[in-house]
């Protein structure tokens, strides 16, 4: 997946699952949209669906510091790169 596709899909998830329309890429999701810890777990589930595989506990831990859409996209890109590098 290229960056634009990831960003588009993440925005779709926010619209569909969290009623957030066109979030700013660097908006603090908690402050701007009340995005909370339960939302974060739901988002990871949606990311798993998007990627077509389950995230490991280690990969999920890496998501703890995410605050913005751009950071989510970085995170997804990193996961994909790591999986490709590992030949999975």
């Amino acid at each position: 997946m290229i960056r634009e596709e990831i960003e588009k899909e993440i925005k779709n998830i926010f619209r569909r699952e969290f009623e957030v329309e066109n979030p700013g890429l660097d908006d603090n999701l908690r402050e701007a949209y009340g995005f909370d810890s339960i939302d974060a777990i739901e988002l990871l589930l949606e990311i798993e669906k998007m990627l077509g595989f389950e995230l490991t506990q280690e990969e999920k831990k890496q998501a703890m510091e995410i605050r913005t859409i751009n950071q989510i996209c970085d995170y997804v890109e990193k996961i994909i790169r790591a999986r490709v590098a590992a030949g999975k």
């Binding site: 339960i38 939302d39 777990i41 739901e42 589930l45 798993e48 389950e54």
Partner: peptide
């Protein structure tokens, strides 16, 4: 269990 939105129970 791992693939279900548990927020449906909140």
């Amino acid at each position: 269990g791992g693939h279900v939105h548990f927020s449906g129970l909140s």
